[in-house]
Design a protein around this nucleic acid. Structure first.
Length: 361
DNA sequence: AATGTGTGCAACCGCCCTACC
DNA sequence: GGGTAGGGCGGTTGCACACAT
C-alpha cells in the first residue's frame, strides 16, 4: 500500500509546458507568491498541472535570474571539485553557482562535463588498446579518478583546497587521537614527494593521496632504520600506541612477510585505513602486487567507506590492474599502491600512492 | 530523401525527510 | 507517537533536434 498520489494523475496535463501555461504560472507567482503550497497552486491558477510540476517549472525555468547553458570554465571547475568532494548532491552544488539549477547542473554533468573530462580515456582505448575499458559506473571510482585528474591538472595536491587530502572533514573515521594528530600536523609535511620507481619507467607516479594510517611501536635497540631520512610522520608516545591498539583491536599486520627490513623488532598495527591497502613492503618489491583480487576487494570496501558511496558491484574493479614486474605492463590508467613509511620511533605515518599509467592518459 | 544513431534537455517518477495534525 | 501531506531531491525517461549513413 503506497502513499496517495499528490494529485489526480488522470486529470493533469503532462509533458512540455506551453507558453500560455508559463505566462499564467509566472504571473501568478510574481503577484501572489506560491502561498507555501505547491499542490494547491495549479487549482488557484486554473492550470491542469500537478503542483510538483508547477514547482519544477518555476524553479528550473521561470524564476528570475536563471541561466541556461554556457557554462564557464570556472563553473566547470567548481562543479568538478564539488562532485569529487560530495558526489551527486546537485542541489548543494547548485547553491554554489548563482543562477544555476540543480537540474541544469545534473544534466550538464551527465551529458557533457563528465564526457569532456573522461572522454580521452575512452578515445585511447578505441584507438588501439585491446584492453577492456575500465568501467566507470561506480560513482566512487569515478570521483576518485576525477579527483586524481583534477589534481594533476591543478598542479598537485597542495593547491587544491577541495582535495581529499586537504579536507579533514571528509577523511574516514579514524581514532580521535590520530585525527587530532593529523590535523595538528602541517599537511604540507605529509605531502609526498614525487617518487619514481625505476622498474616502472613507463608509469608516471604523479599523485599521492592519503592514506593508510599505520601505527608502529618499535624497539629501538637494534634499529638500522632505512627510513630515517623521512621525518614527516607523526610521532606519538608508547602509551598512546598502547591506547590505540587497545581501542582499535588491531593486530600485528602489515610487514609480516618482508625479507629485507629488520622486522623482528617492529610491531605495526593498522589504526585506520584510507584506501591504503597494500603491504608496504611490496611497494619496493619487483614482483609487485600479483595477489590483486584480495587487495582490490579491500580497496573497494575502503573506498566505499571513504566516499560514502553506494555499494560497488563486485566486478567494478576488474578494470583496475595492479603492478607487475613487467616494465611494459598493460596496467590500466589507475593503480594504487601504498607507501607506508615506517618511522624509527613510535609513529604514525600516512601515505598512499595512486599510480598513474601515463601511457593511457 | 529516408532512416538510424547520438545528444541535450525538460520533465516526470518515486523515494525520503519533515512539519503538521 | 503515529499517520499524512507537501516539499525536496536524485535518477531516469522521452522527446526534439542534429548529424551520419
Amino acid at each position: 500500500m503506497g502513499r496517495a498520489p499528490c494529485c489526480d494523475k488522470a486529470n493533469v496535463k503532462k509533458g512540455p509546458w506551453s507558453p500560455e501555461e508559463d505566462v499564467k504560472l509566472k504571473a501568478y507567482i510574481e503577484k501572489y507568491g506560491t502561498g507555501g503550497n505547491w499542490i494547491a497552486l495549479p487549482q488557484k491558477i486554473g492550470l491542469k498541472r500537478c503542483g510538483k510540476s508547477c514547482r519544477l517549472r518555476w524553479l528550473n525555468y521561470l524564476r528570475p535570474n536563471i541561466k541556461h547553458g554556457g557554462f564557464t570554465e570556472e563553473e566547470d571547475n567548481i562543479i568538478l571539485s564539488l562532485y569529487i568532494s560530495i558526489g551527486s548532491r546537485w542541489s548543494i552544488i547548485a547553491a554554489q553557482l548563482p543562477g544555476r539549477t540543480d537540474n541544469d547542473i545534473k544534466n550538464y554533468w551527465n551529458t557533457r562535463l563528465k564526457k569532456k573530462l573522461l572522454g580521452r580515456r575512452k578515445q585511447q582505448h578505441q584507438n588501439g588498446s585491446k584492453d577492456e575499458l575500465p568501467t566507470l559506473s561506480s560513482s566512487a571510482m569515478e570521483r576518485l579518478q576525477l579527483h586524481m585528474q583534477l589534481q594533476n591538472q591543478q598542479g598537485g595536491i597542495q593547491n587544491n583546497p577541495l582535495s581529499l587530502f586537504n579536507n579533514p572533514a571528509i577523511w574516514p573515521k579514524l581514532h580521535p587521537l590520530i585525527q587530532e594528530k593529523l590535523i595538528q600536523t602541517n599537511l604540507q609535511s605529509l605531502n609526498p614527494q614525487m617518487i619514481q620507481y625505476p622498474n616502472y619507467s613507463n608509469l608516471g607516479l604523479f599523485q599521492q593521496t592519503s592514506s593508510s594510517v599505520h601505527l608502529q611501536a618499535q624497539n629501538n635497540n637494534n634499529d638500522n632504520d632505512n627510513n630515517n631520512n623521512n621525518n614527516n610522520g607523526i610521532s606519538i608516545s608508547k602509551e598512546q600506541v598502547e591506547e590505540l591498539e587497545n581501542s582499535s583491536g588491531s593486530s600485528d599486520l602489515v610487514n609480516n612477510n618482508n625479507d629485507n627490513d629488520n622486522d623482528n623488532n617492529n610491531k605495526t598495527s593498522v589504526i585506520g585505513n584510507f584506501g591504503g591497502l597494500i603491504n608496504p613492503s611490496s611497494v619496493t618489491k619487483s614482483e609487485g602486487y600479483s595477489t590483486g583480487m584480495q587487495r582490490v576487494l579491500s580497496f573497494q570496501a575502503e573506498l566505499n567507506e571513504l566516499l560514502g558511496s553506494d555499494k560497488l558491484a563486485g566486478n567494478e574493479f576488474e578494470g583496475i590492474t595492479w603492478w607487475s614486474n613487467d616494465p611494459n605492463t598493460t596496467a590500466s590508467c589507475w593503480d594504487a599502491a601504498s607507501n607506508v613509511v615506517l618511522q624509527s620511533e613510535n609513529s604514525v605515518t600516512t601515505t598512499t600512492t595512486m599510480l598513474y599509467n601515463q601511457d593511457y592518459a
